[in-house]
Design a protein around this nucleic acid. Sequence first.
DNA 1: CCGGAATTATTTGATGCCAAACGAGAGGGC
DNA 2: GCCCTCTCGTTTGGCATCAAATAATTCCGG
Lengths: 191, 191
Amino acid sequence: MPGRRRSIAETEQAVQERLGGFELQREQMAAVANIHRAAAAVRQHLENSALRPHDLTWTGFVVLWVLWIWGEAETWSVAEEAGISKGTLTGIARTLESRHLVARAPHPEDGRRVLLSLTPEGEELMERLFPVFNAEEAFVATPLSAEECLRLANGLRAIVAQLEEHGEERRRQLLDGRDLAPRRSGRRSRR
Amino acid sequence: MPGRRRSIAETEQAVQERLGGFELQREQMAAVANIHRAAAAVRQHLENSALRPHDLTWTGFVVLWVLWIWGEAETWSVAEEAGISKGTLTGIARTLESRHLVARAPHPEDGRRVLLSLTPEGEELMERLFPVFNAEEAFVATPLSAEECLRLANGLRAIVAQLEEHGEERRRQLLDGRDLAPRRSGRRSRR
DNA sequence: CCGGAATTATTTGATGCCAAACGAGAGGGC
DNA sequence: GCCCTCTCGTTTGGCATCAAATAATTCCGG
């Protein structure tokens, strides 16, 4: 039966056959796999519904959101809240600045730091856009009750917390002395 | 107190103040936001623990995984299972092929199609790598019981299903006649 | 069989994304 | 003042990513 997507049951069956010999952490595997399926699906829907008319990417929107909620903020803190690296933020902020949605200002006391804030244009955009965005968030979560949404959010938060608290330690243990191979990509040393 | 990450409670407080005037779908918003936080955190941990020693990216691993479980498969189906676009798969497959982990073969009956499969080298890698990967999946899910993992997975699956079943229809309705502005990026017509 | 419609993978262009290197500035000790 | 170190944001390099355009092939009606 070609052309049909495989069902969850079929996949689990195939996995079981393939992994018969392994000690499989089945439930955890299912959770992790579905986090990514869901994240990709939700992101794509929101980009193609609420965001596309304003020519915003997901990440661009998140950065605007952070600035909208928190007001003027230092870049490191925006990157942290938005869940992206500071290097990525530099690029996003440049894009948003070029579209006059975000302003960049030097820190009054520390020449290294930079403050980001929404322009009036950016504020106005968020006031119009947020209700639309939130409506789509509600749409994707339609099959879940409010309580189920909270359960879901709590479970996910626990995973994030686990990694924040123990992730680094764990990675150190796994390396166990050996040093991590450098990423294939990334800036090279001059030497 | 500069330099400290904002707590969930602080964020919710700030959101409430900022959004006092809006009809806010609070639970759904929390769920969607945390899906992305968790997805990014998990992906980063796995890339920097299990995958980095083998110089694999997340997506590269997922593609290998799909081929490992399902065996030889057509590209469209691999892209579907891996949750990426077929254009992206072309690039990933090229990378994996250059590292002799994946082989590409023409479809015996249809010259347009291409079949992907693991090389023996790729099989061997997955046999060694999967247990390590699965152990890290278990690690990130440590705070959750097996049953909670399943609940989480089910909730996420429901969201994915919602979008698969009703996403396209919804986007059509939202547009309501107007045609979607083209993406800023993407190939341009010759005209 | 011929020619247009449909289907398939690839190419293209712009952006996102990370980690590591880098440069500019701050801060402390002497 | 002068280092030396630390801490910022930015740059860099290599992939990943999508959607639309395109090329290659098959399918179908006549």
